[in-house]
């Protein structure tokens, strides 16, 4: 046994961006652990901080963004303290990332083979023919037909689904422990999405890496993930196993999210939307971030940021409503 508890452990991560009108706290105290071979889903709407969390781990934030505090332990070592040189050997070899748009994340002036080889040469001692063989092996592994021909092609010659396969091949070429997938199928059609999800599940079984799946699509989350983190306004509002989150949601935001998608037996019923609009990160409410849109909000929700409350051993939620009775008893009056 190694001397670390979790493969990746993010503790109280705070990431913010400086813009003209002030400072935006995109990630505000996010913590989670990831163990080897697990699939963790991070779900939330645009602006919830899910992608910034992923970029913080890789330290690929935009110039005006930085990690303000918190630790990111990879195999027990705090990588937020690492310098750029250490980070560049970390990226790709320890943790890899694939992005939403496979067209803009591939370099248009180099061939596919060239780009996969680049990663291999950077992180392993394979060179020349050996690196080429590895690149071919990776393309075959991700199920691209005629891999020899593809090696010599440019990204624009490939379809969206194939480009995403190339991205995956590149990301996994050095056998990282963790693959971060930032909305990997959002730009793809459903039948191609099904192919890519299937491929990721397959490769995960074969190579045994852990996956962090960042997406807004609850369907993708349900298919892929063991554990789920729901984010809203830069904070984690609920975390738990997939079954707990989908069948026993205990945060008003998660409940609202699940109610607002047409599904199964409720297919023809009227949808129950979440009222209001997503929060403005420049003007965060004092208490719970979801409070202005929440039907069940109480006085305390306006004032205090909810703590994480254990629902059961597989489930935590940051919502005062879970201890509503205690709070109301303490206030000594009814809810207003």
């Amino acid at each position: 046994m190694d001397n670390y508890e979790h493969l990746l452990s993010v503790q109280d991560l705070q990431t913010s961006f400086t813009i003209d009108s002030g400072e935006v706290q995109a990630v505000n105290g996010v913590s989670f652990n990831l163990d080897a071979g697990k699939v963790l889903g991070i779900v939330g709407e645009s602006g919830s901080g899910k992608s910034v969390t992923a970029y913080s781990i890789m330290q690929i934030l935009a110039d005006n963004g930085s990690i303000k505090s918190g630790t990111i332990l990879y195999k027990g070592e705090d990588i937020t303290k690492w310098n750029e040189k250490q980070m560049s050997s970390f990226r790709g070899k320890c943790v890899s990332i694939i992005f939403q748009d496979p067209m803009t994340s591939l370099n248009p002036v180099f061939t596919v083979g060239n780009q996969i080889k680049e990663a291999i040469v950077l992180h392993t001692d394979k060179r020349g023919k050996e690196a080429e063989a590895r690149a071919l092996e990776m393309l075959t592994l991700v199920g691209i037909n005629e891999p020899e021909k593809r090696l010599k092609q440019y990204p624009f010659e490939l379809s969206g689904g194939m480009r995403q396969r190339v991205m995956i091949a590149m990301a996994l070429a050095c056998e990282p422990d963790i693959l971060i997938a930032d909305e990997p199928t959002t730009a793809l059609d459903v039948t191609i999405q099904a192919q890519i999800l299937e491929l990721m599940q397959d490769l995960q079984k074969k190579m045994g890496m852990a996956i962090i799946m960042v997406t807004h699509d609850l369907g993708v989350i349900a298919e892929m993930c063991d554990e789920i983190i729901v984010m809203y306004g830069g904070r984690v509002c609920e975390r738990g196993t997939a079954d707990e989150i989908f069948y026993n949601p205990r945060h008003e935001y998660t409940k609202g999210l699940l109610r607002s998608i047409p599904e199964g037996s409720r297919m023809k019923e009227r949808l129950v939307p979440i009222a209001g609009t997503p929060i403005n990160m420049l003007r965060m409410p004092k208490g719970c971030a979801f409070c202005p849109r929440c039907d069940a909000a109480m006085k305390i929700c306006l004032e205090e940021i909810p703590e994480e409350i254990w629902i059961n051993e597989n489930h935590k939620a940051s919502c005062w409503c879970n201890i509503r009775d205690q709070i109301l008893a303490g206030e000594g009056k009814t809810n207003e």
Binding site: V190, T191, Q193, A194, L197, D217, L218, G219, V220, I221, A222, E223, A242, D243, F246, Y247, L258, I261, E263, G264
Partner: peptide
Amino acid sequence: SLLSAVPIPDPKIAR
């Protein structure tokens, strides 16, 4: 195949 490819937001059905 289009219908079977749609990810269903329900873990038990999805599995």
